[in-house]
Design a protein around this nucleic acid. Structure first.
Lengths: 223, 223
DNA sequence: CTGTATCCTCAAGGATACTG
DNA sequence: CAGTATCCTTGAGGATACAG
Protein backbone atom coordinates (compact mmCIF):
# COMPACT_ATOMS: atom_id res chain seq x y z
CA UNK A 1 0.00 0.00 0.00
CA UNK A 2 1.05 3.54 -0.48
CA UNK A 3 1.97 5.62 2.53
CA UNK A 4 -0.85 7.27 4.39
CA UNK A 5 -1.61 10.95 4.05
CA UNK A 6 -3.13 11.05 7.52
CA UNK A 7 -6.19 12.83 6.26
CA UNK A 8 -9.85 11.91 6.46
CA UNK A 9 -10.53 13.50 3.06
CA UNK A 10 -11.81 10.85 0.66
CA UNK A 11 -9.53 12.11 -2.10
CA UNK A 12 -6.57 11.48 0.16
CA UNK A 13 -7.87 8.06 1.16
CA UNK A 14 -8.40 7.16 -2.48
CA UNK A 15 -4.98 8.34 -3.50
CA UNK A 16 -3.31 6.35 -0.78
CA UNK A 17 -4.35 3.34 -2.81
CA UNK A 18 -4.15 4.74 -6.30
CA UNK A 19 -1.20 7.10 -6.51
CA UNK A 20 1.44 4.45 -6.66
CA UNK A 21 3.17 4.09 -9.94
CA UNK A 22 1.45 1.73 -12.42
CA UNK A 23 -1.60 1.07 -10.27
CA UNK A 24 -4.18 2.88 -12.36
CA UNK A 25 -2.68 1.56 -15.57
CA UNK A 26 -3.30 -1.95 -14.34
CA UNK A 27 -6.87 -0.99 -13.51
CA UNK A 28 -7.19 0.45 -17.00
CA UNK A 29 -5.99 -2.84 -18.46
CA UNK A 30 -8.51 -4.81 -16.46
CA UNK A 31 -11.23 -2.42 -17.62
CA UNK A 32 -10.14 -3.03 -21.19
CA UNK A 33 -10.85 -6.70 -20.82
CA UNK A 34 -7.52 -8.21 -19.82
CA UNK A 35 -7.88 -10.90 -17.20
CA UNK A 36 -4.78 -13.07 -17.18
CA UNK A 37 -1.43 -12.09 -15.77
CA UNK A 38 0.26 -12.01 -19.12
CA UNK A 39 -2.63 -10.22 -20.76
CA UNK A 40 -2.28 -7.42 -18.26
CA UNK A 41 1.42 -7.56 -18.72
CA UNK A 42 1.14 -6.92 -22.43
CA UNK A 43 -0.54 -3.64 -21.59
CA UNK A 44 2.27 -2.57 -19.26
CA UNK A 45 5.30 -4.04 -20.97
CA UNK A 46 7.80 -1.83 -19.20
CA UNK A 47 6.75 -3.14 -15.85
CA UNK A 48 8.68 -5.99 -14.32
CA UNK A 49 6.64 -9.09 -13.58
CA UNK A 50 7.68 -8.87 -9.95
CA UNK A 51 6.22 -5.45 -9.59
CA UNK A 52 3.09 -6.34 -11.53
CA UNK A 53 2.56 -9.28 -9.23
CA UNK A 54 3.00 -7.06 -6.21
CA UNK A 55 0.60 -4.45 -7.51
CA UNK A 56 -2.05 -7.04 -8.32
CA UNK A 57 -1.77 -8.41 -4.80
CA UNK A 58 -2.17 -4.92 -3.41
CA UNK A 59 -5.25 -4.38 -5.53
CA UNK A 60 -6.70 -7.65 -4.30
CA UNK A 61 -6.01 -6.70 -0.70
CA UNK A 62 -7.56 -3.30 -1.30
CA UNK A 63 -10.75 -4.93 -2.55
CA UNK A 64 -10.43 -3.51 -6.05
CA UNK A 65 -9.57 -6.77 -7.77
CA UNK A 66 -10.53 -10.34 -7.03
CA UNK A 67 -9.40 -13.66 -8.39
CA UNK A 68 -11.81 -15.29 -10.82
CA UNK A 69 -13.62 -18.48 -9.95
CA UNK A 70 -10.90 -20.59 -11.54
CA UNK A 71 -8.40 -18.75 -9.40
CA UNK A 72 -6.49 -17.81 -12.49
CA UNK A 73 -8.11 -14.62 -13.58
CA UNK A 74 -8.01 -11.11 -12.24
CA UNK A 75 -11.39 -9.44 -12.20
CA UNK A 76 -12.50 -6.07 -10.97
CA UNK A 77 -14.77 -6.05 -7.94
CA UNK A 78 -17.70 -3.62 -7.83
CA UNK A 79 -15.35 -1.16 -6.12
CA UNK A 80 -12.87 -1.63 -8.94
CA UNK A 81 -15.53 -1.27 -11.58
CA UNK A 82 -16.53 2.02 -10.01
CA UNK A 83 -13.08 3.37 -10.76
CA UNK A 84 -14.16 3.61 -14.37
CA UNK A 85 -15.26 7.25 -14.06
CA UNK A 86 -11.87 8.06 -12.56
CA UNK A 87 -10.00 6.42 -15.41
CA UNK A 88 -12.29 8.02 -17.98
CA UNK A 89 -11.84 11.46 -16.46
CA UNK A 90 -8.08 10.97 -16.54
CA UNK A 91 -8.19 9.82 -20.15
CA UNK A 92 -10.26 12.82 -21.15
CA UNK A 93 -7.95 15.20 -19.37
CA UNK A 94 -4.88 13.53 -20.79
CA UNK A 95 -6.06 13.59 -24.37
CA UNK A 96 -7.04 17.24 -24.11
CA UNK A 97 -4.01 18.61 -22.32
CA UNK A 98 -1.11 16.34 -23.15
CA UNK A 99 -0.80 16.29 -26.87
CA UNK A 100 2.95 16.04 -27.30
CA UNK A 101 4.34 12.54 -27.26
CA UNK A 102 7.99 11.71 -26.92
CA UNK A 103 9.58 9.21 -29.25
CA UNK A 104 9.70 6.73 -26.40
CA UNK A 105 5.93 6.98 -25.96
CA UNK A 106 5.49 5.37 -29.36
CA UNK A 107 5.45 1.63 -28.97
CA UNK A 108 4.16 -0.44 -31.88
CA UNK A 109 3.57 -3.41 -29.61
CA UNK A 110 1.21 -1.37 -27.45
CA UNK A 111 -0.52 0.13 -30.46
CA UNK A 112 -1.25 -3.24 -32.01
CA UNK A 113 -2.27 -4.73 -28.68
CA UNK A 114 -4.73 -1.92 -28.26
CA UNK A 115 -6.06 -2.09 -31.82
CA UNK A 116 -6.46 -5.83 -31.54
CA UNK A 117 -9.13 -5.49 -28.93
CA UNK A 118 -11.04 -2.78 -30.67
CA UNK A 119 -11.81 -4.45 -33.96
CA UNK A 120 -15.28 -4.00 -35.43
CA UNK A 121 -15.67 -7.59 -36.47
CA UNK A 122 -18.95 -6.84 -38.23
CA UNK A 123 -17.09 -4.55 -40.61
CA UNK A 124 -14.35 -7.03 -41.45
CA UNK A 125 -14.98 -9.46 -44.34
CA UNK A 126 -15.81 -13.03 -43.51
CA UNK A 127 -13.03 -15.53 -43.57
CA UNK A 128 -9.48 -14.62 -42.74
CA UNK A 129 -8.20 -11.11 -43.26
CA UNK A 130 -4.55 -10.28 -42.72
CA UNK A 131 -3.42 -6.70 -42.26
CA UNK A 132 0.28 -6.02 -42.49
CA UNK A 133 1.44 -2.86 -40.78
CA UNK A 134 4.74 -1.31 -41.71
CA UNK A 135 6.27 1.54 -39.74
CA UNK A 136 9.18 3.01 -41.70
CA UNK A 137 10.31 5.11 -38.74
CA UNK A 138 10.77 2.13 -36.46
CA UNK A 139 13.90 -0.06 -36.17
CA UNK A 140 13.65 -3.12 -38.39
CA UNK A 141 13.13 -5.54 -35.53
CA UNK A 142 9.80 -3.97 -34.65
CA UNK A 143 8.84 -2.51 -38.01
CA UNK A 144 6.43 -5.11 -39.31
CA UNK A 145 3.32 -6.39 -37.62
CA UNK A 146 0.66 -8.77 -38.81
CA UNK A 147 -2.89 -8.53 -37.60
CA UNK A 148 -4.77 -11.72 -38.36
CA UNK A 149 -8.52 -11.22 -38.28
CA UNK A 150 -11.03 -14.01 -38.28
CA UNK A 151 -14.70 -13.87 -37.31
CA UNK A 152 -14.75 -12.83 -33.67
CA UNK A 153 -11.02 -13.28 -33.31
CA UNK A 154 -7.87 -11.23 -33.75
CA UNK A 155 -4.21 -12.06 -33.32
CA UNK A 156 -1.10 -9.94 -33.40
CA UNK A 157 2.18 -11.29 -34.73
CA UNK A 158 5.55 -9.63 -34.91
CA UNK A 159 6.69 -12.34 -37.32
CA UNK A 160 5.19 -13.34 -40.62
CA UNK A 161 2.53 -15.94 -39.77
CA UNK A 162 2.66 -17.14 -43.36
CA UNK A 163 -0.84 -16.20 -44.42
CA UNK A 164 -1.53 -14.22 -47.53
CA UNK A 165 -1.64 -10.53 -46.73
CA UNK A 166 -4.97 -8.88 -47.52
CA UNK A 167 -3.97 -5.25 -47.14
CA UNK A 168 -0.79 -3.45 -46.21
CA UNK A 169 -0.88 -0.28 -44.14
CA UNK A 170 2.27 1.79 -44.26
CA UNK A 171 3.04 4.95 -42.33
CA UNK A 172 5.17 6.32 -39.56
CA UNK A 173 4.28 4.93 -36.18
CA UNK A 174 3.86 8.46 -34.95
CA UNK A 175 1.13 9.09 -37.49
CA UNK A 176 -0.61 5.82 -36.77
CA UNK A 177 -0.62 6.68 -33.09
CA UNK A 178 -2.03 10.10 -33.90
CA UNK A 179 -4.82 8.43 -35.82
CA UNK A 180 -5.48 6.01 -33.00
CA UNK A 181 -5.64 8.80 -30.40
CA UNK A 182 -7.93 10.87 -32.59
CA UNK A 183 -5.32 13.56 -33.24
CA UNK A 184 -5.37 12.85 -36.97
CA UNK A 185 -8.17 11.61 -39.15
CA UNK A 186 -7.71 8.56 -41.35
CA UNK A 187 -8.92 10.46 -44.37
CA UNK A 188 -6.48 13.31 -43.81
CA UNK A 189 -3.59 10.93 -43.30
CA UNK A 190 -4.48 9.03 -46.45
CA UNK A 191 -5.01 12.16 -48.52
CA UNK A 192 -1.68 13.65 -47.48
CA UNK A 193 0.09 10.35 -48.06
CA UNK A 194 1.36 10.18 -44.49
CA UNK A 195 -0.30 6.79 -44.41
CA UNK A 196 -0.91 4.55 -47.38
CA UNK A 197 -2.99 1.45 -47.79
CA UNK A 198 -2.25 -1.09 -50.51
CA UNK A 199 -4.51 -3.91 -51.56
CA UNK A 200 -7.70 -4.50 -53.49
CA UNK A 201 -9.67 -1.30 -53.93
CA UNK A 202 -12.69 -2.54 -51.96
CA UNK A 203 -10.60 -3.56 -48.99
CA UNK A 204 -8.48 -0.44 -49.10
CA UNK A 205 -11.47 1.80 -48.63
CA UNK A 206 -12.83 -0.37 -45.84
CA UNK A 207 -9.75 -0.55 -43.65
CA UNK A 208 -10.38 2.51 -41.47
CA UNK A 209 -13.80 1.14 -40.62
CA UNK A 210 -12.37 -2.01 -39.13
CA UNK A 211 -10.86 -0.19 -36.18
CA UNK A 212 -12.96 1.41 -33.49
CA UNK A 213 -11.01 4.29 -32.03
CA UNK A 214 -10.93 4.46 -28.24
CA UNK A 215 -13.67 6.60 -26.69
CA UNK A 216 -11.41 9.51 -25.78
CA UNK A 217 -10.36 9.94 -29.42
CA UNK A 218 -13.55 11.82 -30.17
CA UNK A 219 -13.10 14.29 -27.33
CA UNK A 220 -12.95 17.94 -28.44
CA UNK A 221 -9.55 19.50 -27.95
CA UNK A 222 -8.94 22.87 -26.34
CA UNK A 223 -8.89 25.77 -28.79
CA UNK B 1 8.06 15.31 -12.98
CA UNK B 2 7.19 11.72 -12.42
CA UNK B 3 8.94 9.09 -14.43
CA UNK B 4 7.56 8.32 -17.86
CA UNK B 5 5.50 5.25 -18.56
CA UNK B 6 6.57 5.24 -22.20
CA UNK B 7 3.01 4.87 -23.36
CA UNK B 8 0.92 7.00 -25.69
CA UNK B 9 -2.22 6.24 -23.70
CA UNK B 10 -3.66 9.46 -22.29
CA UNK B 11 -4.27 7.84 -18.92
CA UNK B 12 -0.58 7.06 -18.72
CA UNK B 13 0.39 10.55 -19.85
CA UNK B 14 -1.92 12.07 -17.27
CA UNK B 15 -0.62 9.87 -14.50
CA UNK B 16 2.97 10.76 -15.29
CA UNK B 17 2.07 14.18 -13.97
CA UNK B 18 -0.48 13.27 -11.35
CA UNK B 19 0.58 10.07 -9.67
CA UNK B 20 3.29 11.56 -7.55
CA UNK B 21 2.58 11.72 -3.87
CA UNK B 22 0.70 14.84 -2.73
CA UNK B 23 0.15 16.26 -6.20
CA UNK B 24 -3.61 15.80 -6.44
CA UNK B 25 -4.10 16.90 -2.85
CA UNK B 26 -2.50 20.22 -3.73
CA UNK B 27 -4.80 20.49 -6.71
CA UNK B 28 -7.72 19.73 -4.42
CA UNK B 29 -6.62 22.55 -2.10
CA UNK B 30 -6.42 25.00 -4.97
CA UNK B 31 -9.88 23.93 -6.08
CA UNK B 32 -11.13 24.58 -2.57
CA UNK B 33 -10.06 28.18 -2.81
CA UNK B 34 -6.59 28.25 -1.31
CA UNK B 35 -4.22 30.52 -3.19
CA UNK B 36 -1.29 31.41 -0.98
CA UNK B 37 1.56 29.12 -0.12
CA UNK B 38 0.62 28.88 3.53
CA UNK B 39 -3.06 28.47 2.75
CA UNK B 40 -2.26 25.43 0.65
CA UNK B 41 0.08 24.28 3.35
CA UNK B 42 -2.65 24.29 5.94
CA UNK B 43 -4.48 21.76 3.79
CA UNK B 44 -1.47 19.43 3.60
CA UNK B 45 0.09 19.92 7.03
CA UNK B 46 2.13 16.74 6.93
CA UNK B 47 3.97 17.88 3.86
CA UNK B 48 7.27 19.63 4.29
CA UNK B 49 7.45 23.14 2.84
CA UNK B 50 10.35 22.09 0.68
CA UNK B 51 8.33 19.39 -0.96
CA UNK B 52 5.28 21.60 -1.31
CA UNK B 53 7.40 24.19 -3.02
CA UNK B 54 8.80 21.59 -5.35
CA UNK B 55 5.37 20.21 -6.22
CA UNK B 56 3.96 23.65 -6.90
CA UNK B 57 6.85 24.35 -9.25
CA UNK B 58 6.18 21.09 -11.04
CA UNK B 59 2.52 21.98 -11.40
CA UNK B 60 3.47 25.36 -12.83
CA UNK B 61 5.85 23.75 -15.29
CA UNK B 62 3.17 21.26 -16.24
CA UNK B 63 0.76 24.08 -17.06
CA UNK B 64 -1.71 23.12 -14.37
CA UNK B 65 -1.02 26.05 -12.07
CA UNK B 66 0.08 29.59 -12.77
CA UNK B 67 1.21 32.43 -10.58
CA UNK B 68 -1.41 35.14 -9.98
CA UNK B 69 -0.96 38.63 -11.36
CA UNK B 70 0.71 39.81 -8.16
CA UNK B 71 3.10 36.92 -8.47
CA UNK B 72 2.19 35.77 -5.03
CA UNK B 73 -0.78 33.55 -5.63
CA UNK B 74 -1.15 30.11 -7.08
CA UNK B 75 -4.07 29.77 -9.43
CA UNK B 76 -5.30 26.87 -11.52
CA UNK B 77 -4.99 27.26 -15.27
CA UNK B 78 -7.82 26.07 -17.50
CA UNK B 79 -6.02 22.73 -17.66
CA UNK B 80 -5.89 22.65 -13.88
CA UNK B 81 -9.51 23.62 -13.56
CA UNK B 82 -10.39 20.73 -15.83
CA UNK B 83 -8.96 18.34 -13.29
CA UNK B 84 -12.05 18.98 -11.20
CA UNK B 85 -13.93 15.97 -12.62
CA UNK B 86 -10.94 13.80 -11.78
CA UNK B 87 -10.84 15.03 -8.19
CA UNK B 88 -14.59 14.72 -7.85
CA UNK B 89 -14.57 11.19 -9.19
CA UNK B 90 -11.84 10.29 -6.72
CA UNK B 91 -13.75 11.86 -3.85
CA UNK B 92 -16.89 9.98 -4.77
CA UNK B 93 -15.03 6.71 -5.02
CA UNK B 94 -13.19 7.34 -1.79
CA UNK B 95 -16.26 8.18 0.22
CA UNK B 96 -18.09 5.14 -1.09
CA UNK B 97 -15.39 2.55 -0.76
CA UNK B 98 -13.05 3.69 1.98
CA UNK B 99 -15.14 4.11 5.05
CA UNK B 100 -12.71 3.07 7.75
CA UNK B 101 -10.47 5.79 9.05
CA UNK B 102 -7.42 5.17 11.20
CA UNK B 103 -6.87 7.22 14.31
CA UNK B 104 -4.14 9.08 12.52
CA UNK B 105 -6.55 10.17 9.80
CA UNK B 106 -8.40 12.26 12.34
CA UNK B 107 -6.82 15.68 12.52
CA UNK B 108 -8.80 18.45 14.26
CA UNK B 109 -6.71 21.10 12.52
CA UNK B 110 -7.74 19.77 9.13
CA UNK B 111 -11.36 19.41 10.15
CA UNK B 112 -11.62 23.00 11.35
CA UNK B 113 -9.71 24.31 8.36
CA UNK B 114 -12.17 22.54 6.11
CA UNK B 115 -15.25 23.64 8.05
CA UNK B 116 -14.00 27.20 8.10
CA UNK B 117 -14.32 27.50 4.38
CA UNK B 118 -17.73 25.91 4.16
CA UNK B 119 -19.71 28.19 6.43
CA UNK B 120 -23.19 29.21 5.35
CA UNK B 121 -22.84 32.83 6.38
CA UNK B 122 -26.47 33.53 5.59
CA UNK B 123 -27.47 31.05 8.27
CA UNK B 124 -25.20 32.48 10.96
CA UNK B 125 -26.57 35.31 13.12
CA UNK B 126 -25.35 38.83 12.46
CA UNK B 127 -22.55 40.15 14.56
CA UNK B 128 -19.90 37.90 16.00
CA UNK B 129 -20.59 34.26 16.74
CA UNK B 130 -18.03 32.11 18.47
CA UNK B 131 -18.24 28.33 18.33
CA UNK B 132 -16.07 26.41 20.74
CA UNK B 133 -15.33 22.84 19.72
CA UNK B 134 -14.19 20.35 22.30
CA UNK B 135 -12.93 16.90 21.34
CA UNK B 136 -12.67 14.76 24.49
CA UNK B 137 -10.80 12.02 22.64
CA UNK B 138 -7.98 14.29 21.54
CA UNK B 139 -4.84 15.15 23.58
CA UNK B 140 -5.27 18.36 25.54
CA UNK B 141 -2.99 20.39 23.33
CA UNK B 142 -5.33 20.03 20.36
CA UNK B 143 -8.59 19.46 22.17
CA UNK B 144 -10.14 22.91 22.00
CA UNK B 145 -10.79 25.00 18.92
CA UNK B 146 -12.52 28.31 18.51
CA UNK B 147 -14.31 29.21 15.33
CA UNK B 148 -14.93 32.93 15.18
CA UNK B 149 -17.67 33.81 12.72
CA UNK B 150 -18.40 37.31 11.52
CA UNK B 151 -20.37 38.35 8.46
CA UNK B 152 -18.54 36.95 5.49
CA UNK B 153 -15.55 35.97 7.58
CA UNK B 154 -14.39 32.98 9.61
CA UNK B 155 -11.27 32.38 11.66
CA UNK B 156 -9.94 29.31 13.38
CA UNK B 157 -8.00 29.55 16.63
CA UNK B 158 -6.38 26.82 18.65
CA UNK B 159 -6.12 29.21 21.57
CA UNK B 160 -8.85 31.14 23.32
CA UNK B 161 -9.24 34.36 21.36
CA UNK B 162 -10.95 35.92 24.37
CA UNK B 163 -14.37 36.46 22.86
CA UNK B 164 -17.50 35.29 24.59
CA UNK B 165 -18.42 31.81 23.41
CA UNK B 166 -21.81 31.61 21.73
CA UNK B 167 -22.18 27.84 21.57
CA UNK B 168 -20.05 24.91 22.60
CA UNK B 169 -19.97 21.74 20.53
CA UNK B 170 -18.61 18.70 22.30
CA UNK B 171 -18.04 15.27 20.88
CA UNK B 172 -15.32 12.86 19.90
CA UNK B 173 -13.33 14.02 16.92
CA UNK B 174 -14.12 10.75 15.23
CA UNK B 175 -17.83 11.48 15.41
CA UNK B 176 -17.39 15.04 14.20
CA UNK B 177 -15.42 13.76 11.25
CA UNK B 178 -18.15 11.22 10.54
CA UNK B 179 -20.68 14.02 10.51
CA UNK B 180 -18.50 16.10 8.23
CA UNK B 181 -18.00 13.26 5.77
CA UNK B 182 -21.69 12.46 5.76
CA UNK B 183 -21.26 9.12 7.52
CA UNK B 184 -23.37 10.28 10.46
CA UNK B 185 -26.23 12.73 10.55
CA UNK B 186 -26.17 15.69 12.94
CA UNK B 187 -29.58 14.76 14.28
CA UNK B 188 -28.57 11.19 14.98
CA UNK B 189 -25.39 12.28 16.70
CA UNK B 190 -27.28 14.78 18.84
CA UNK B 191 -30.08 12.36 19.68
CA UNK B 192 -27.67 9.64 20.76
CA UNK B 193 -25.61 12.12 22.75
CA UNK B 194 -22.44 11.33 20.80
CA UNK B 195 -22.30 15.04 20.15
CA UNK B 196 -23.76 17.73 22.38
CA UNK B 197 -24.34 21.41 21.79
CA UNK B 198 -24.59 23.82 24.69
CA UNK B 199 -25.79 27.41 24.47
CA UNK B 200 -28.99 29.36 24.06
CA UNK B 201 -31.80 27.18 22.73
CA UNK B 202 -32.23 29.17 19.51
CA UNK B 203 -28.55 28.95 18.63
CA UNK B 204 -28.27 25.32 19.63
CA UNK B 205 -30.87 24.28 17.12
CA UNK B 206 -29.30 26.38 14.43
CA UNK B 207 -25.71 25.14 14.67
CA UNK B 208 -25.91 22.25 12.20
CA UNK B 209 -27.26 24.64 9.59
CA UNK B 210 -24.18 26.82 9.73
CA UNK B 211 -21.97 24.20 8.16
CA UNK B 212 -22.32 23.11 4.57
CA UNK B 213 -21.11 19.56 4.28
CA UNK B 214 -18.75 18.86 1.38
CA UNK B 215 -20.46 17.67 -1.80
CA UNK B 216 -19.36 14.05 -1.48
CA UNK B 217 -21.05 13.77 1.92
CA UNK B 218 -24.41 13.28 0.26
CA UNK B 219 -23.23 10.46 -1.98
CA UNK B 220 -25.13 7.20 -1.53
CA UNK B 221 -23.04 4.46 0.01
CA UNK B 222 -22.83 0.91 -1.31
CA UNK B 223 -25.35 -1.45 0.20
C1' DC C 1 1.73 -19.79 -18.51
C1' DT C 2 2.06 -17.58 -14.00
C1' DG C 3 4.46 -15.90 -11.47
C1' DT C 4 9.09 -15.76 -7.49
C1' DA C 5 13.59 -14.76 -6.06
C1' DT C 6 17.42 -11.68 -5.82
C1' DC C 7 20.06 -7.88 -6.28
C1' DC C 8 20.95 -3.19 -6.56
C1' DT C 9 20.60 1.69 -7.11
C1' DC C 10 18.84 5.96 -6.79
C1' DA C 11 16.05 9.39 -5.67
C1' DA C 12 11.66 10.49 -3.37
C1' DG C 13 10.48 12.59 0.31
C1' DG C 14 10.50 13.08 5.61
C1' DA C 15 12.60 16.06 9.28
C1' DT C 16 14.54 20.17 10.85
C1' DA C 17 16.57 24.49 10.66
C1' DC C 18 17.07 28.69 8.62
C1' DT C 19 16.60 33.12 5.51
C1' DG C 20 14.90 37.44 2.89
C1' DC D 1 4.56 35.48 4.96
C1' DA D 2 6.98 32.62 1.53
C1' DG D 3 9.75 29.91 0.83
C1' DT D 4 15.42 27.52 0.85
C1' DA D 5 19.02 24.73 2.52
C1' DT D 6 20.61 20.47 4.20
C1' DC D 7 20.76 16.01 5.73
C1' DC D 8 19.37 11.45 5.82
C1' DT D 9 16.89 7.19 5.35
C1' DT D 10 14.35 3.76 3.26
C1' DG D 11 11.92 1.49 0.31
C1' DA D 12 10.23 1.87 -4.53
C1' DG D 13 10.97 -0.16 -8.35
C1' DG D 14 14.12 -1.45 -12.40
C1' DA D 15 16.78 -5.54 -14.21
C1' DT D 16 17.54 -10.25 -14.69
C1' DA D 17 17.27 -14.92 -13.81
C1' DC D 18 14.78 -18.70 -12.44
C1' DA D 19 10.83 -22.07 -10.93
C1' DG D 20 6.48 -24.81 -10.63
Amino acid sequence: MGASYYQFCPVAKAMELLDERWTLLIVRELMSGSERFNEVRRGVPRMSPTLLSKRLSQLVRAGIVTRGADGDRYVLTPAGEELRPVVEALALWGIRWIGELGDHDLDPKLLLWDMRRRIDHDAVPDGRTVVLFGFPDVPVRERHWWLVLAPGDADVCDMDPGFEVSVTVTGDLRQMVRIWRGDLRWEDALRSGEVTVRGPESLRRAVPGWFVLPPFAAAPRPA
